[in-house]
Amino acid sequence: MLRNMALAITATGLRKTFGTTTALDGLDLTVEEGEVHGFLGPNGSGKSTTIRILLGLLRKDGGEVTLLGRDPWTDAPDVHCRLAYVPGDVVLWPNLTGGEVIDLLGRLRGGLDATKRAKLLERFDLDPTKKGRSYSKGNRQKVALVAALASDVPLLLLDEPTSGLDPLMEKVFQDCLREVRAEGRTVLLSSHILSEVEAVAERVSIVRKGVVVDTGSLADLRSLTRSTVVATLGTPLDLSATRAWPGVHAADLDPTNAQRVTLWIDTDHVGEVLRSLGEHGIRALTCQPPSLEELFLSQYKDDLAEVSP
């Protein structure tokens, strides 16, 4: 499974408990150098705990973890020179201005690119002269983002970095991430905003209850799940026969138009199904690969079943 590439992050069988709560229950995670890796999961699934262990802020109870080839607990300062971190809930010093915090964090990390800093302040439309206590949630987030993105470090650990950002700034953030990727830097992007991950990530890991339940490239993951085909046909279709076609999971007729059919099929059977449909004379057709949202929901449908009556 591992390609012949250097690994920025490896975690194997990572375990962490807080009192009686098990936060991580044997989590495995691999992030290759130079990729943007989406780290997906609902609230409380263990994303932040994992990132805090990667930062050496929490101590693992079991398993193995390396960050840029080092142990994040014992070699924390060496590793931290080469990474930047943005937490999901940025708390600033009430009496320091945003500009001071950006400079401070940059210097503590070992340096900061002044040109980048100025550019980022402009792109994110952030006033650096305001005091920490007078920033809104989104603006506090921007302070940490500018501090992280203005550094030249090879690894970015972003824990739900865009919470509180408006859609415009969300777009700026995605542009920045694409640039970071183009520079060959590595990003671990924890999020539950699927469109954001879909827009920038090459590979994703989906975490649930402290375990990674699925990991791979977006294309790989999509091939494991179902595409939706909607076709308007020349001749009517026998639904029960259609359901017996290989790869078809479900089929449905439009109640107002008997020639319009919706099929849910395994993504790797799309070709065969289209050939079979062709015998009925296709007039219009849409074929949608599964969205990340569907991938995500398919992993969580047990949980959804538990909450819905």
């Binding site: 802020l57 931290h80 937490p87």
Partner: peptide, 15 residues
Amino acid sequence: APGRAEIVLATATTR
């Protein structure tokens, strides 16, 4: 407690 130590200790600053 509020998480300000976290962003400092995520830099090259040792505990």
